[in-house]
Every structure is written in C-alpha cells, then in structure tokens.
Nucleic acid binder design. Structure first.
Length: 546
DNA sequence: AAAATCGTTAAGAGAGGGCT
DNA sequence: AGCCCTCTCTTAACGATTTT
C-alpha cells in the first residue's frame, strides 16, 4: 500500500480540529469598576518651627534656632521624616539642641592639632637678609657676579623654602659646595646668553615705535632659549629639588614665559598643564561613566542617553578656566529639585569639588545667571578705566577701585597707570552697527578709514589707525599701554580692503587665535574682517566676468 | 614682569542612618 | 539615646594659571 492511498483513507479532507478563537493581544474590556478617588500626596506643610518629640515648638537651647535641621539645609535623603533633637551636657545641665549644635559639641571634644602661626614681617625680613649674606659669601668664593641669583625668593605664609641654600651647602661639612655653586653659576651664564637672543636681531638704527608691526617684533625669546629652559627646568626641579620660583630666578624666565598663550605659535603654550585629571590623562571615557557610582540619583547614567553632550562638556572644560566655569554652571542647572551631583560633574569635567562649589554658589546667588563674569583682574581695570575717564582729576579713584574690583576682595597692589585723557569713545550702538555691517551692499562705498575712525570713538575699545606703507591698520590699545608691545601688535587688525586674499586669510587666522584666547572684543573685528573677505571675493568675481 | 585669580587637595561641617 | 560611620558639600592653604 502506497503512502498516498493510506493518507486518503485515514486523513479527512476537512480538518476535524476545532477552530480556535482568535487570540486577542490585549485583554478584553473589563466591566468598569467604581471610579476610585485619586489619592493626592499632600506636601509636608511648611512650618516656621519644628516640634519636639512631645509635640511642643522646638527651640535649640544653644543657638535658639526653631529648627532641628534648618529647612535650607534639608536634603531629600530624609524625605518628610522628622529629625529628632540632640542632647548635650553643659555644666551638668542637659540641653536639647539642634542637629548642628549637637554635632558641633560632640566634635569639640576631639583633639585638634593647632595650626602653626604665620610668619611675621620681621621673620621674612630676617630670611631675606640671611639670603643676601649667603649670596655675598658665594660671590667672594667664586668672584662671579651671577652669584646674587643663588637664593630662593619663595617665602609664603609659614616657612621659607630656602631650597637653593639647602642644595649648595654640603650636608656633612655644613659649608657651601664649590662644585654645586659652579654648576648653578654655569647654568645662569648659559641662560643669560641664550636669553639675549631674540626672534629678530636687535637693530638700534630702527627706532622703537609703538605702532611697529611684525611677529614678535624682536621681543620674543629664541627657540634655543625656550628649549634650554624647558629641559633644564625639569632637571633642576627633579634632580636638585629646587622649587619653581628658585628655578625661575636661576634661568631668568617668568611665569608668563611658561604659560602665556603665544599668538605666534600653533601649539601656543610652552608648558602643558601638569595638574588636574584631564592633564594627567586619568579621565574615564564617557562610555564607562555609567559603571561609576556617583550618588543616589545615579547622575552617571546620563552617559547612556547623552554621550555627545557629555563629551562636548568635557572638551569645553579643558579649553580654559573661564569655559570650565561655564560648563559647571550648565551642568548644575536644576531640573525640578535635582541637579547633577558634584561627583558626576567632576567625572565629566575633571575638575575638583572646589570650583564646582564656587560656581554653584555664584550661579545660585545670581538667580540662575550662568555668565561666569569677567576675570577679576580684567574687571578691575575695566572699572578703573571707566571711573578714571569720568573723574580725570580724582586721584583717589585708584584707591577706591582697589576695593571695587571683582568680588570686592581683591586688593591690587601694583602701581596704576595714567589714563589717556585725549581718547575718544564710541557708544555701544555704534559698536553694534559695526558688527552688523553687511558687505554685500557696500562694495563701492566701503571706506576702511571711516570704519577705523568710528572705532576710534569706541566706548569699550581704544583704537588707533596706523599706516604701514600702503596698508592701513586698526590697532587696539589699552589705557595706559599696559599690554606688552608684542601683545598690542598682535591685536592689530587689517582694515584695508585692497589687501590680497592670502593676507586676509592670514589675518583671519590670527583673529581666530585671538578670539580663542577669550578676547571677546575682537569678535567685532572678526565680523568686519569677514566683510572684507566677502568684498574681496566679490571684487574678484566681478573682475573675472569683465 | 608682576601680581591677582583660580584650581587642587585635604580637612572640616552638617545631614542621614545603622547598630547597640 | 548615644555612638559612629558614610555621604555630600564647603573651606583654607598652597601653588598653578591668567591677567594687565
């Protein structure tokens, strides 16, 4: 019997199976139950005092606070739970006190090591007098006048550093080691020689004029000197255990030499940051942040949904101190009652809790305004220049502005420059008009000199037109010529539209560098310059058609 | 170059909560 | 209730960074 025949006999044509009811993918509608009354969670009523365990109004028997925990310090960890008062014993009396007083009393019993007092002016003078005597001794020993640099100027609040003398004096004999002295004197001589080499050779026939143009203009130190300092500095600090200030004195460079953002260099700092998690390369990749516990809110889980944003925050925080503060302010914007916790902000930016705390407090005090504000020192000079312009005969305004700068705490001790009373100022509206300059409609009438003249009236900027050959330049200066000559020259902006494209491009790059350095005033110049580039392109296109 | 500001670090302060 | 630990944020000293 074939399989086909067998099938035809045993299998019916129509299925004998019962057809199943079509399954529903959602539960069938249930008969409507009685509508429940929605239970709204009642917020805890705000009271002007707390209650004791027996229901009476609380009052701390030490600080008289009506709160066991002040509402401003209440965190959500406790929820609506009522804290119990603490009890302390004072002169055999048992006092019911608030949480803070109770904790303070219990900690007051701990032994605390007293801090050593700060050094007096007399102690400092004695130290510098002894340092002078030491260098005179070295001068007698070696006959080298450079020996006057062989002392450490580092004396902060408590103890002098005195690292140079410790290095030179032999530990066993207690007398200065001639060999070590000669080593340091040799370095001073080398440094002095290399330091005198500048970017351009000094030509006394060319008179030094404030408007001279040229990268470096002879002020920039030579590459050989830079290399020598960077190499020797490490050696002196690591091998000889000298402090940074002593090394600066020996090799003849300043803090500014190391940290200034050089507008003439692509990689514009001589030293890279050495502190901070970002500089040390110890920041966790953003993708790994969710594995880290930050707080009960688990802010780090944000890295799953917003990795790009976190990466952008991280990059910006490393650009500059000012940008880092702006990032902190953004990260601490509250959503409802919560904000990103300190640990999370630190994990993303690499900054420690100190700046996060300061920025948070500042933003809170400003009602949520995130603008970081000017650097205190910059704000000081801005305020001072304005006041001096308004009160040109008032000599006391300098002193007053010492205490009006930044947050009011800064005491500026430097001698203040005179303000140029002949300067003209442009109002803010003119400045804004200049920013919105539209190159497309002004090709024929555009006049570089008139734009430069309008800038001369600037309220915020202090400018001059400088002519170099056939090229006219707009140069930004600062009241009192505080900027170094080099910096002034780099702030010079070309305003002549007949420049060729290569020159315009070169200047545009220069502007980008300036703007990256935080000089927002230059945005105005940047916009104008873009206008010149547009004009230049358009002229070129018209010439091609003709 | 000089000097002030600001970041890092460690310790302190206050809150929350577990254990006895 | 009292002790003690952890968590989160603040403060102060020092030194790096930024400003004029």
């Amino acid at each position: 019997m074939s399989a086909t025949e067998d099938n035809s006999q045993q299998t019916p044509r129509c299925s004998q199976r019962k057809k199943k009811m079509k399954e529903r993918f959602s539960p069938p509608p249930q008969p409507k139950s009685k509508p429940r009354k929605r239970l709204l969670k009642q917020p805890r009523p705000i009271q002007s005092y707390d209650l004791t365990p027996d229901g009476r109004p609380f009052s701390c028997q030490k600080c008289l606070s009506p709160y066991i925990i002040h509402p401003a310090r209440h965190t959500k960890r406790s929820g609506n739970k009522r804290m119990k008062p603490r009890y302390i014993t004072v002169d055999d009396d048992r006092l019911m006190v608030c949480n803070a007083c109770g904790l303070a009393a219990s900690r007051a019993n701990r032994p605390v090591e007293p801090k050593p007092p700060k050094a007096s002016e007399e102690e400092k003078q004695n130290y510098f007098q002894e340092s002078l005597q030491f260098t005179q001794l070295l001068l007698q020993l070696t006959g080298d006048a450079n020996a006057e640099r062989l002392n450490c100027p580092n004396f902060l609040s408590r103890n002098p550093c005195d690292c140079v003398r410790r290095f030179i004096i032999d530990a066993e004999s207690g007398v200065p080691s001639l060999e070590r002295t000669q080593t340091l004197l040799g370095l001073i001589t080398d440094a002095k020689g290399l330091s005198s080499e500048k970017c351009y050779k000094h030509d006394p026939s060319i008179e030094k004029k404030p408007g001279r143009i040229g990268i470096g203009n002879g002020q920039k130190r030579s590459a050989q000197y830079s290399q020598f300092v960077l190499k020797t500095r490490e050696h002196l600090r690591n091998e000889f255990s000298l402090c940074e200030k002593a090394v600066q004195r020996i090799l003849g460079y300043s803090n500014n030499f190391l940290h200034k953002r050089l507008k003439t260099e692509q990689d514009n700092r001589r030293v890279t940051r050495v502190k901070g998690k970002a500089a040390l390369g110890s920041l966790l990749p953003i993708a790994e942040l969710p594995n880290e516990y930050c707080c009960q809110q688990q802010c780090t889980l944000m890295a799953w949904d917003y990795p790009v944003l976190l990466e952008q925050w991280r990059q910006r925080a490393q650009q500059s101190q000012a940008e880092a503060r702006l990032v902190i302010a953004e990260m601490k914007i509250p959503a409802g009652l919560r904000t990103n916790c300190y640990t999370f902000v630190s994990l993303v930016t690499g900054l420690s809790s100190g700046p996060i705390s300061k920025v948070s407090a500042k933003v809170k005090a400003a009602g949520g305004d995130r603008e970081p504000g000017q650097h205190g020192r910059r704000a000081f000079w801005h305020n001072y220049a304005q006041a001096a312009a308004m009160e040109p005969d008032d000599d006391d305004c300098r002193e007053r502005h010492r205490f009006n700068s930044a947050d009011g705490s800064a005491a500026c001790n430097e001698s203040l420059p005179a303000v140029d009373s002949n300067s003209e100022f442009m109002n803010h509206e003119d400045l804004m008009n200049a920013q919105s300059y539209d190159p497309t409609g002004q090709t024929a009438d555009f006049n570089a000199t008139s734009v430069a003249e309008s800038f001369k009236k600037s309220d915020d900027l202090h400018c001059d037109i400088v002519e170099l050959g056939s090229v006219k330049l707009l140069q930004e200066t600062t009241p009192g010529d505080l900027l170094s000559q080099h910096e002034q020259l780099m702030d010079t902006i070309f305003v002549e539209p007949s420049l060729d494209q290569a020159s315009l491009d070169q200047q545009a790059e220069l502007l980008v560098v300036n703007m990256d350095n935080g000089n927002s005033q230059l945005n105005t110049f940047g916009n104008i310059l873009k206008g010149f580039q547009e004009v230049s392109k358009r002229n070129e296109a018209i010439n091609n058609i003709e």
